[in-house]
Design a protein around this nucleic acid. Structure first.
Lengths: 175, 175
DNA sequence: AGGCATTAGTTTAACACTCAACATTTGGAT
DNA sequence: ATCCAAATGTTGAGTGTTAAACTAATGCCT
């Protein structure tokens, strides 16, 4: 019953997996080395820096940074200790709280950005042709749309794949 | 001096980032739910299952699973507690140790594989045309090659990109 | 043989992430 | 008005990851 991966699908999946894992661990390591924060924290600072007045509700920030509420809460606590973010109470909703990027935080982000952008270029964009960058964009868009639609939806416009080739003999080649 | 990202590069990078992050967290969550281990552990079991006699030196396993030695050491300790992997001393090198997949571990992997493969299909492969799968493969190869070559190497066969468009006005759009 | 850099693997501590439980507030339904 | 489900945000426990220090064995070099 299981629709195992055929050889080409398997190669594609495993290569993708390895490439993205190495890519992110490399970017994370460089960011950690250069400015002492993980990439997810950097992402939070970026989203804040782009918001009007550099303030956002926690929940909006969580959404913007693709983070869970819990993770964001922990992260902001840590960024607050560093003096890069300040929490304020929300005037219109007593449940809520606001996260504001401090001047110090903005300065830290400005200091970190050039080397991070350079990393992204060096490890990703410079390795791809402009056409591949375009392709990667479209592919990512498709994946994202599927994931955002929720786990129940089914991709359409594509022929059904129920008849794909059979799986492994003895061992699960499902990496 | 900084080669900031232009609009298209920025969109591509951010979409890629969001898509892969959501994809992996989704796959991880489903694997955790269905068989109680993170994806990195699953990867370890798969690599062991494919090795001759289902045994590998720790260092070989680390390489195969794209893991650091430290991480692997922790992971194998945990998998050993579960009875899925057993450590043996290496006969040819007294420093070394071998990790062997137990029958129990193999059975657990077999049980986990179908639903995991289904996840990979549902969230990734089914969303892409066969051509896009091919493109993703090539893109991943390119990234991987660059990363494996080491941080010092420069991509070749591509025109230099020193003259890209300038960066942000006030704030680092480097997400 | 002796010395020593290298390699294999583990360990510790600090940190980040997840899940579930929790307190609080909101907003609608009756 | 009252009740209750839904939403906001935090917290704590458990788990995984990382970097650096550490032990032990290897193999080369003289």
């Amino acid at each position: 019953m299981t629709r195992w991966l055929n050889a080409e699908e398997q190669r594609a999946w495993r290569t993708f997996l390895a490439a993205t894992q190495l890519l992110y661990s490399q970017l994370d390591r460089e960011l950690q080395r250069d400015c002492g924060i993980p990439h997810t924290y950097y992402e939070i600072l970026v989203r804040l820096s782009e918001a009007p007045e550099r303030v956002l509700r926690m929940s909006e920030l969580a959404q913007a940074a693709e983070s869970s509420r819990s993770r964001l809460s922990h992260a902001v606590a840590r960024l607050e200790e560093a003096g890069w973010v300040r929490r304020e109470s929300c005037p219109t909703d007593r449940r809520g709280s606001l996260a504001r990027l401090t001047e110090q935080g903005f300065a830290a982000l400005q200091a970190a950005a050039p080397s991070h952008v350079e990393s992204v270029r060096r490890h990703l964009l410079d390795r791809l042709s402009p056409q591949q960058v375009q392709q990667l964009h479209e592919i990512s868009e498709a994946i994202l749309t599927g994931l955002r639609a929720g786990p129940e939806s089914t991709p359409d416009g594509r022929p059904g794949r129920t008849g794909t080739t059979a799986g492994p003999g003895g061992c699960p080649e499902a990496g």
